[in-house]
């Protein structure tokens, strides 16, 4: 389904979606962009939010179950209650094509058997409305180097393209169509000249990407020979071992599961899944104290190999969408493009 929507009608569209919970990028009081709930004054802007919409599909904290003990006389009973995510239809507007692509990558992880029901309930209830990037939202965007593009469709249910006074609206899934049908009167059929314009805008947008990693597939192959290289020690010297690069990454999905106690007598608590990161030492530390990844070098290596070698070996896709957040936000300037370039050229 291909339509156009006058830009001035966008707020109308949002208003008509009364049975959906709606998120879109908004600037907070401090000038920072976040995916926030719609508030009646909603416009779309091509800015990179600090945290990707991963926070909606894979929230930082997710209660998996609740448990409680009770005692009747001498008999103790233990009750374990499954807690599933609320089944509320949700729309995220203004998703960057790379962020939607990241959801498509997360789908691989959480879809592989056995399926992760928590992720899937949210994913199936969420409609992602992508907005093609014209111009790129950050100086460090490099989506075109990792088999993506500023107008990629993977993961999106609808892709919007800004044509000046209107959006070109391309629906990609049934979920996308439902969203358009909910406000039918606002949309016009797309005309051939719109289609032509979209193509031109898309081609132009690719040229605006400022950073490039040449030969990403070759990097992937090269990494297979680099595991034992002292290279990683050098590259990781300045790493602070914080979790920024992974927490703000749209495709990083590692998590921890812990029991959190609410009450001790009688016992009552919840089992919670939280984001975790390969950059923390406790991520892999055995109970004995033995740690297969004992230093910053092995942890930096894990992050890069997971994204550019291991994931490629299993799914034939990069687990990096080239959003550049980890580059922009690294407090010590570790630049994934530069490191991978060094890998590519290592020993040459």
């Amino acid at each position: 389904m291909e339509k156009t929507l006058a830009k001035k009608d966008f707020p109308q569209w949002v208003k008509k979606l009364t049975s959906w919970k709606i998120y879109l990028p908004k600037k907070d009081a401090g000038g920072r962009w976040n995916y926030a709930e719609a508030d009646g004054e909603d416009v779309l802007e091509t800015r990179q939010a600090t945290l990707p919409p991963k926070t909606i599909l894979f929230p930082q904290n997710e209660i998996l179950l609740e448990f409680s003990k009770s005692r009747k006389g001498n008999a103790e009973t233990l009750e374990v209650k499954e807690v599933l995510p609320p089944a509320e239809p949700t729309v995220v507007f203004g998703v960057r094509p790379c962020e939607a692509k990241a959801a498509w990558l997360l789908d691989e992880v959480f879809a592989s058997e056995p399926r992760d029901i928590y992720y899937w309930m949210r994913r199936e209830n969420t409609t992602l409305v992508g907005l093609a990037c014209t111009p790129p939202p950050s100086d460090n965007c490099f989506c075109t180097s990792v088999e993506g593009s500023p107008h990629a469709e993977e993961g999106s249910d609808i892709l919007l393209t800004d044509l000046g006074d209107k959006y070109y609206v391309r629906s990609l899934t049934a979920k996308g169509e439902a969203l358009i049908n909910a406000a039918k009167g606002l949309f016009e059929e797309a005309k051939p000249e719109d289609r032509k314009k979209v193509k031109a805008v898309h081609t132009e947008s690719e040229k605006k990407i400022q950073r490039e990693l040449k030969g990403a597939r070759a990097v992937s192959e090269k990494l297979k020979t680099m595991f034992d290289s002292p290279f990683w020690d050098e590259e990781a010297m300045s790493c602070l071992r914080c979790g920024i690069c992974t927490y703000i990454c749209p495709s990083c999905h590692c998590f921890d599961i812990n029991d959190e106690i609410i009450d001790t007598t009688p016992l009552r608590g919840k089992r919670v899944r939280t984001w975790d990161t390969c950059q923390f030492p406790d991520f892999t530390m055995h109970s004995s104290g033995h740690n297969p990844r004992p230093d910053k070098a092995s942890r930096l290596r894990q992050r890069l190999l997971h994204k550019f070698q291991y994931f490629v070996q299993v799914y034939d896709k990069f687990m990096c969408v080239g959003c550049g957040r980890c580059i922009t936000m690294c407090p010590v300037g570790i630049d994934i493009i530069k490191v991978l370039e060094k890998v590519r050229d290592h020993g040459a």
Partner: peptide, 10 residues
């Protein structure tokens, strides 16, 4: 706070 512990790490 997302508890990335960058403050502690720096």
């Amino acid at each position: 706070c997302i508890r990335c512990y960058a403050c502690r790490s720096a």
